[in-house]
Write a protein that binds this DNA or RNA. Structure first.
Length: 463
RNA sequence: GGCGGCGUGGCCGAGCGGUUAGGCAGGGGCCUGCAAAGCCCCGUACUCCGGUUCGAAUCCGGACGCCGCCUCCA
């Protein structure tokens, strides 16, 4: 049984599925107005790991994640750069998918775009107006949050106390500062669509309700996103579903922040680092390992030091892959039924990892377990119990693969010069001519190779 | 003001009543011609002050420090 923290109930509970064996999940995606930042990298990795784990446990997953392609910041940027909103959105969506591919994040089964769901949104807003849970002001249509009895469920506080803390609102036509825009009336030269309640464009909170219900149906299983979406975004999605009398998410799950020093990294603070930059400078797997080494609900600190730390740890994993010549797993959708016959040496490891993962995706404990097993596998091999060591190494590889982390034995083409140097060095070593052997090693190192002495002689690889 | 979270060894980061977390870095050793890789051993941490308990990093109370949400944000 998989257990997961549910924000709506503020407790870890059994994942209760609409249909046994199938998980429907909706993950709030990006607004494509800029390069993806580290926070985007974290949430996509966290929910990618969840998805892969569910699959690994034999569940069939329907994963939906949206692209918000109509929004204030896109308009602002288009204006500033004198080009169309469509162009801006297309550019950054391309950047988005490029980064996701490099991170090894499996693409969603569906990635709906807000602009393709305008009619459905208009229909929903019209029904709210009809039923008087929304009202028209001079700048658009607003949702009246007081019509939803348990508004504030996700925020963990009642409407009155949320209202008490709300900042002074510039729009005094709103009945409550918490009321949110369903529809923004068109301004000159902005993208807009016709509607019975006026030409305009949708507010942000409506698209996800329409797309989640449209693609996953009522009473879908899991709604995920960053902690900053808990309130007001997810609260407002919920409110609309309630108002529409449609069963919404059974579970709500939120991942923690990426921190920069002591502060949350965010667009508004302007302290964000682009994911694209990170991926150019480092092995993308280092970020995945970093994410796996802390719990998804905890804040993580991403810095050059923590990334370097993860890269070195990764080095040990890759060394295992080299030692046992392990196959590359996890790169694409890696599925391995839990019924796979696990060798005696690895069954216990498998069971412990499964127990940790199924308990609210405790990846840090799972990873710790796998690193311990890594030492055991190496020790066994050192002691000559090679077959047992290999089976354990294969289990480690599979379990990391299940989390989307691919261990790389590394492949490279030996050039003629390197090949010749290796042969010469082996000959020198055989003749116990250490001076020549060391000189030849220096030459290989100078040519960019890492040189190790294996049981069969000189082994070289690229860093 | 309301709500929520955090403070762990050099760094990152788990644990959430009794047992070694794990990684990285560092020290010592084994192996090796040397080096690398690998293995073994080592640091003996829990912001502070009280309390509960046979026993607390873990529960309760208080203090201090920090962060987040209540506004767009993953």
């Amino acid at each position: 049984m998989i257990r997961l923290y549910d924000t709506a109930r503020a407790e870890v509970r059994d994942l209760s599925l609409r249909r046994p064996g199938r998980v429907s999940m909706y993950v709030c995606g990006p607004t494509v107005d800029n390069l993806p930042h580290l926070g985007h990298g974290r949430f996509t990795l966290v929910w990618d790991v969840a998805r892969r784990w569910f699959t690994f446990q034999g569940l069939s997953v329907h994963y939906v994640s949206n692209i918000t392609d109509v929004e204030d910041k896109i308009i602002t940027r288009a204006r500033r750069e004198s080009r169309s909103e469509t162009e801006v959105a297309a550019q950054f969506e391309a950047e988005w998918w490029d980064a996701m591919d490099r991170l090894g994040v499996i693409r969603p089964d569906d990635s709906p775009h807000a602009t393709r769901y305008i009619p459905e949104m208009i229909e929903l807003i019209a029904s709210f107006l009809e039923r008087d849970v929304a009202y028209v002001t001079s700048d658009g249509v607003y949702f009246d949050v007081s019509t939803v009895p348990d508004y504030g469920l996700l925020a963990g506080q009642p409407l009155e106390s949320l209202r008490a803390g709300a900042r002074v609102e510039e729009n005094n036509e709103k009945r409550s500062p918490l009321d949110f825009a369903l529809w923004k009336n068109a301004k000159p030269d902005e993208p807009s669509w016709p509607a019975s309640f006026g030409e305009g464009r949708p507010g942000w909170h409506t698209e996800c309700v329409v797309m989640a219900l449209g693609l996953l149906g009522e009473d879908f299983d899991l709604h995920c996103g960053g902690l900053d979406l808990k309130f007001p975004h997810h609260e407002n999605e919920r409110a609309q579903a309630e108002a529409a009398h449609r069963a919404f998410a059974r579970h709500w799950a939120h991942n923690g922040w990426v921190m920069v020093g002591d502060d949350k990294m965010s667009k508004s603070l302007g302290n964000f680092t682009s994911l694209t930059d990170l991926l150019e400078k480092t092995d993308p797997r280092a970020y995945r390992l970093l994410v796996l080494r802390s719990h998804y609900r905890s804040p993580i600190e991403i810095s050059p030091a923590t990334i370097a730390d993860a890269e070195r740890a990764l080095g040990r994993l890759d060394a295992l892959a080299r030692r046992f010549d392990l196959p590359e797993l996890g790169g694409e959708r890696f599925e391995l039924a839990s019924s796979q016959p696990w060798a005696e040496e690895s069954l216990e490891l498998y069971e412990r990892v499964v127990a940790f993962m199924n308990d609210d995706l405790n990846t840090p404990l799972a990873v710790a377990e796998l690193f311990e097993a890594l030492s055991v596998a190496n020790a066994s091999a050192d002691e000559g119990r090679v077959a047992a060591a290999r089976r354990l190494a294969e289990a480690i590889n599979s379990l990391f693969g299940a989390m989307g982390l691919t261990l790389l034995a590394g492949s490279y083409v030996l050039d003629e010069v390197a090949e010749k140097l290796v042969l010469e060095r082996d000959a020198a070593r055989l003749a116990r001519n250490w001076a020549d052997a060391d000189r030849l090693r220096d030459e290989l190192v100078a040519r960019g190779w890492i040189v190790e002495d294996g049981a069969l002689g000189t082994v070289i690889r690229r860093p």
